[in-house]
Simulated assay, not measured.
Amino acid sequence: MNNSVVLAAQNITAGYGGHPAINDITVELREDEVLCLIGHNGAGKSTLLKCLFGLLASESGSVMIDGQDTTRESAREISDRGVAMVPEGRGVFPSLSVRDIFSLGMHASGVPKKEQSDRVEWVLDILPAITEFMNRPAGTLSGGQQQMVSIGRALLNRPRILLMDEPSIGLAPKLFQDLLAPIRALQQREKLSILLVEQNVREALKISDRAVVMKSGAMIWEGQPAELEDNERLMELY
């Protein structure tokens, strides 16, 4: 595995209304790896992702992409660097069809019109189940189907760095496995870098190359997923 760092938070402190949610966080995502970020609710995981993707300004510290400082860049600028984010809670427009959601997403991120149908075909190859409900309003879809749409929309940008915030929320374990398998296959084929924030620790660790643990806004552990197979070790960290 190539160890070059593609995305890094360096001593990031950030929060809301003057109250820090994360303190002095440093973490690195490397080329061609799945890094699993775990921690209890309120540990600051989503806040960190928002800083990395330009959705939240940090109070101190820096964000680096390919060694370049992107701390003050907008989400659109960071998207243009090849980063995509699957937000917590899916964020699909219930009244729009999946096809329209995809079109809107590509328009918003500046995908040239002549490339759009190829992009959609590429996503449908990765997540073929979406084909069955392309013309349905997103509000009529199940939670698992909506999550697929949210991931598909992020993939339309052909990102090389993918941030995923709690993709298992509201999904049965089997559905989550069915969702993760094609994403891991894509990652290995395309050498993607994925930062996966997840509560379903067991399933997430199965597809991860490294893991980091956050607690109360601080990074408290980093290591190999196999080291967390012991329940006692996991409970200590939580």
Rank of each mutant, 00 (worst) to 15 (best):
P167I: 11
E115Y: 06
R233P: 09
D32G: 14
L56F: 13
F102T: 00
G144C: 08
I25Y: 01
A181T: 11
D209G: 14
A172L: 09
L162T: 05
E77R: 10
L228K: 03
L52Q: 10
C36H: 03
S142A: 04
G144Q: 03
L104A: 13
Q177S: 13
G139L: 06
F53N: 13
I126W: 00
W221L: 11
K174G: 06
N3Y: 02
R72F: 12
S109D: 01
M106D: 01
L237N: 03
G143R: 02
F133Y: 07
I78K: 09
T140N: 05
P182L: 07
G110C: 10
A204P: 13
A108W: 01
S58N: 15
R233C: 13
Q116V: 02
I194P: 12
L37K: 05
R189P: 14
D125T: 00
Q224W: 06
G139K: 02
A211W: 06
G54P: 15
I101A: 04
G223S: 04
E115L: 13
Q188H: 10
A218W: 03
V197C: 15
Q10T: 08
E227C: 11
G17L: 10
L163N: 07
I183Q: 05
R233Q: 15
V34I: 15
W122C: 00
S193H: 10
S60Q: 14
L52N: 05
R153W: 02
H19N: 08
S74I: 12
A185F: 10
V111K: 00
E190T: 08
R72D: 14
L228M: 13
D125N: 02
S117T: 08
L195M: 15
L29P: 08
I25H: 01
R76L: 09
E115M: 15
M1A: 06
D80M: 12
V123D: 00
L124S: 00
E229T: 12
A226M: 12
S74R: 09
N200A: 13
V86M: 04
L237I: 15
L29E: 05
N157W: 00
G110P: 10
W221A: 09
A181N: 07
T47A: 04
A138H: 01
P87Q: 05
R119Y: 00
D165C: 11
D118P: 01
P225G: 05
A172I: 09
R158A: 09
D32P: 06
